[in-house]
């Protein structure tokens, strides 16, 4: 069997590892299975067997896992091919769906509960801040869909302008951190701890997920598209 082993501070993943071991190593990896709509149960299936069953490139899947566990991990691009681009896009698109249709409304509902304990001005200002943040994130994701993913869908990938993948990640990251700081440090004590903590769990989860998302775009999608552009010019 073609065995690939990666070693980090936090993990040691290989293609012949059983799925149950993989998830046991870091249960948050379940989100990858969820987004790729990979069916459970796995029984004693290994990672490579699962990828073979579902027609998923195993080398790409293991890089998703590595980059999920370790934000500083950088993929081995020699193992990744341009044929994997649609799979990457499919995963990124599922992540967009998760942010827009689950995370943002979920955080908003926690915020609404917190805001009932604030005065009118604080309520209006904080709500506007969150709505602007959600709008900024939504617009950025929509732009990626329109300018990058749509080209890949229509097989015009080489004409893709990759600048969109860079644009406002830092701004979104700053605002995500700002929300957390405001809730932790400055929201009046009348706001219930339970709702406040529930919101913070979600905000930090969203922040970390957006960082992983950005890393996948920067270190997998962009280089693969660049590789395709180079190929199409030769």
């Amino acid at each position: 069997m073609n065995k690939i082993t990666y070693t980090h501070d936090t993990s040691r993943l290989s293609l012949d590892m059983k799925i149950v071991e993989l998830i046991d190593c870091n249960s948050s990896l379940l989100s990858i299975f969820d987004r790729l709509d990979i069916k459970l149960p796995f029984g004693d299936m290994s990672l490579s067997e699962m990828c073979q069953r579902d027609g998923y490139p195993a080398e790409l899947f293991i890089e998703f896992c590595n980059m999920h566990i370790d934000l500083s991990h950088r993929p081995n691009l020699d193992m990744l091919t341009t044929e994997m681009i649609p799979h990457v896009v499919s995963y990124l698109r599922a992540s967009h769906n998760y942010y827009l249709n689950y995370m943002l409304p979920h955080v908003a509902s926690h915020l609404d509960e917190i805001l009932t304990h604030c005065d009118n001005l604080s309520r209006a200002t904080l709500r506007r801040f969150y709505d602007d943040y959600a709008k900024c994130l939504t617009e950025h994701l929509a732009e990626e869909e329109a300018t990058v993913f749509a080209n890949i869908d229509s097989h015009t990938t080489p004409s893709t302008n990759l600048d969109t993948l860079d644009t406002p990640h830092d701004d979104i990251n700053d605002r995500t951190n700002d929300i957390a700081s405001l809730i932790i440090k400055y929201l009046p004590e009348q706001a219930p701890t339970k709702a406040r903590c529930a919101m913070l769990y979600d905000i930090y989860a969203l922040r970390d997920d957006l960082r992983r998302h950005s890393n996948l775009e920067t270190y997998i999608l962009k280089p693969l598209i660049a590789k395709l552009k180079t190929g199409s010019h030769q």
Partner: peptide, 15 residues
């Protein structure tokens, strides 16, 4: 404050 965005600083000023 630990807050970087202008919008976040506005919320801080209000709170």
């Amino acid at each position: 404050t630990g807050i970087r965005s202008v919008a976040g600083l506005t919320v801080y000023a209000v709170l």
